[in-house]
Amino acid sequence: MSDGDDKKVPKRGVISAEERASIKARAGEIDKRLDEARARISPKSTVDPRVRGQAMGQGLRIAVDLVVGVAFGGFVGWWLDRYFGTAPWLMVVLLILGFVAGMMNVIRTAQRLQAEAEASQLAAPSVSSRPGDRNDDD
């Protein structure tokens, strides 16, 4: 424990102004490098939750369209069969027609959604400059 040591090593807990500045600069640099590394490992998710929510809604929309056509056709066919006493022919026919009608609604919905998606993609400048991306949707 000599006096010389005390002079070289500054008092604990006291940091000079230059030291503080250099620590801050280093921390800033580390932050920057961390951000870069993070971006490399997991590029920022481009799907924002609102888009995901909309996609979920669209999925449910199509699912119900599909089921309701068959159910409606089957029910109306069954009811008409009971009324006319032609079981099971009207039910069979209407089940098929109902299925096709439901399918058609699904296709129309999908076409509309596709058209909307394409329109919004073309409107986005970051996408329209890369024409190759358009194939991803098909």
């Binding site: 369209d65 309701v68 056509g69 159910a71 409606f72 056709g73 209407l94 027609l97 009608a101 609604n105």
Partner: peptide, 11 residues
């Protein structure tokens, strides 16, 4: 087409 119109309120 008629059925697909009629099932709209149901779906």
């Amino acid at each position: 087409e008629v059925i697909s119109f009629l099932i709209r309120p149901i779906s």
